[in-house]
């Protein structure tokens, strides 16, 4: 925080302490930054920074450990939920989060996420759905929309040969082990506020020992989509939200009682 309230002005907003003073390598407008910021704000507000352990994944967010101002480990591609399982079981008093892209979590790491959820591991998973593999150059991901052009589906995703997108929140919500599974969007201030509230809820779930929580964030990748950041936000709204409806897919009755 660079300044505090003074006699004439109220501080409305400043950079959260749970982010380091480091400029990220993310492209201009990338919603990885919004997701990082919201997670950091909630950690500040809950005063749990000293309890946090993050598990970074492979993808554009591979350097997340440089940007969050708390302890982090870095997992092999897709294995963050397995690593988080070990960390949380050994250090149950810590708050353990993974931060994973859609290539990482819904493709190479599908086994790890499904089994962590079905075991009801008391961890929190932040899942960034930007419909492609950002880091490696915008290849098709399990979340790429039907007809969407990527560098490895140049005529548009053909569901006949390439299958249908995976709706991760719906899928994980079907497992008895999951406690809080929701989808939010980072496209506009209203949805960003709702996303922040869900992050708060997910950490509350973990702190109460209520088990597995996962938030899917509909996100943009302006660079690989070949659009400006604001055009990407509009594309998200018009194309992603209809296919990936926002909402609460699993709220265990014990979670529903939490008031925040």
């Amino acid at each position: 925080m660079d300044m505090i309230d003074n006699d004439t002005e109220t501080l409305v907003y400043s950079r959260p302490n749970s982010l380091t003073d480091v400029s990220t390598h993310y492209c201009p407008g990338c919603t990885h930054g919004i997701a990082h910021r919201l997670i950091a704000e909630v950690i500040d507000e809950m005063n749990i920074r000293e309890k946090m352990i993050g598990v970074a994944s492979v993808g554009c967010s591979v350097f997340a450990y440089n940007y969050f101002n708390f302890d982090f480990v870095q997992a092999p591609h897709g294995r963050a939920p397995a690593m988080a399982t070990g960390v949380k079981r050994v250090l149950p008093e810590k708050v353990v989060m993974t931060y994973q892209g859609d290539g990482d979590m819904a493709s190479i790491g599908m086994a790890e996420i499904v089994h962590a959820a079905t075991r009801g591991e008391n961890i929190t998973v932040f899942f960034i759905n930007n419909t492609n593999y950002g880091m490696t150059g915008g290849q098709m991901a399990p979340t790429t929309l039907p007809g969407q052009k990527t560098t490895s589906s140049q005529n548009g995703r053909d569901v006949e040969t390439q299958g249908y997108p995976i709706r991760a929140a719906e899928l994980l919500s079907q497992l008895d082990g999951s406690s809080y599974v929701v989808r939010r969007s980072l496209n506009d201030p209203k949805n960003i506020r709702l996303a922040k509230k869900a992050i708060r809820m997910a950490f509350e779930v973990q702190l109460r020992g209520l088990g597995f929580s996962m938030i899917e964030f509909l996100s943009i990748c302006p660079t690989n989509w070949g659009m400006s950041a604001s055009a990407s936000m509009t594309w998200l709204e018009n194309n992603m939200i209809p296919y990936y409806p926002l909402g609460d897919y699993k709220v265990h009755p014990a979670v529903a009682e939490i008031k925040i």
Binding site: M1, M3, T10, V12, S23, Y26, G29, H32, P189
Partner: peptide
């Protein structure tokens, strides 16, 4: 709220 870089500090009189 929208800034991806947490680059903005905001004050109100």
């Amino acid at each position: 709220i929208i800034c991806p870089e947490a680059a903005i500090t905001i004050y109100r009189e």
